[in-house]
Design a binder for these strands. Structure first.
Lengths: 192, 192
DNA sequence: ACCGAGCGAGAACGAACGTTCTCCCCTCTC
DNA sequence: GAGAGGGGAGAACGTTCGTTCTCGCTCGGT
């Protein structure tokens, strides 16, 4: 077995388990069993559980960024690209495994106790916000639009996670339409 | 010492500690020390840690509902009452102890493992959404407005928590103004 | 003054967890 | 074929945690 293949499987399995049940609720032995590796190999690939958590966060960040980018790329106009954020959310919420944003969850679980996790969650959110800023700029929108849309996206994620329904994506999208059209149409009017 | 006074102090202390460091990171012994009660009294008042967690959630719910209601009541018009939601958030985010919505956090930490916690978080969010629906109705807004504002409020909370800044309240408020004015002004136009 | 009930302090217990160690088998090399 | 090295299974270790138990003290009633 390739050493890097074991790593990949460990991180992928950890991602699933941590997402489904929470990081602290999944022990190393359960992860070992689910990933089909020995404990020795686990600790050969990762020095500690904390480093697995960080690897999972990196994987989640990559997966999110790539998935979002792929959905956005399909949109034709700058306005549609901004709205594509919410289409991506809608599709994500439909997955059986959806249990809320993994960064919000890990921040809530470990942010107060692990500076690394807190910092990575912050970076992930900042990178998303930067991305929205870029999309908003390409649409020629005033600078206050991007944070508004980011907040809508965050809210849709937690609402969908806790309520267990998918409608928040649609509701957030319709709100985003209003915000975008107002920002693009009525130049000069209102600022944050 | 009044028996109910001990209860109150235990729950208040647990609220602080759980909020600051996470539920799972705070042991019964630390709670006992911080609340200044004996372990015996602790288990005399509550059968288990889980029941303390539920009592904390109930306290948080009451505190949230009362604080929100108090802020909303100060607003003069239905439109301002809707916006008061975000003034309440702004004020909350400024508190040193703010570390995100306690229900989102406890849901992320224990929701997958404790059906009671998950259910209570759901109920809390549903009750907030109902409240927004009521305020929106009093403003004569179409039914799609309330979920939009609820999502904004959720998003502001997680954004403020992770970024560690307070500006999300202001940004969400300005977005809410747009959504409210659009919903109240352009009757018939767009629905969710 | 004495007895019993209640309380605080903290030891004790059992379980779970992260991490390391041991033992055994397989395999590859000479 | 013998020996060594690596890897898997899982026992072991030390810690932490939730919960219970023990012990000694205090205090109120008669």
């Amino acid at each position: 077995m390739n050493i890097s293949e074991a790593r990949t499987r460990i991180v992928a399995t950890a991602d699933e388990l941590y997402n489904a049940r929470g990081i602290q609720a999944v022990g190393m032995d359960e992860l070992r069993a689910a990933a089909g590796v020995s404990l020795k190999k686990l600790y050969q690939e990762f020095p500690s559980k904390g480093s697995i958590v960080m690897a999972v966060l990196e994987r989640r960040h990559r997966s999110w960024a790539e998935g979002l980018e792929a959905t956005v790329r399909q949109a034709a106009t700058p306005r549609e690209r901004l709205l594509a954020i919410f289409d991506y959310l809608a599709q994500w919420f439909c997955e059986d495994s959806f249990r809320g944003c993994g960064f919000i969850n890990s921040f809530a679980e470990l942010g107060a106790v692990s500076p690394e996790v807190a910092e990575y969650a912050r970076e992930h959110k900042a990178s998303f916000q930067d991305y929205v800023v870029r999309l908003a700029n390409e649409a020629g929108a005033p600078s206050y639009l991007a944070p508004q849309l980011s907040i809508l996206a965050e809210g849709a994620q937690t609402t969908a996670a806790i309520a267990g329904t998918t409608e928040a994506a649609r509701q957030a999208r319709s709100a985003a339409e209003v915000l975008i059209d107002t920002a693009l149409g009525g130049r000069s009017s209102r600022a944050a």
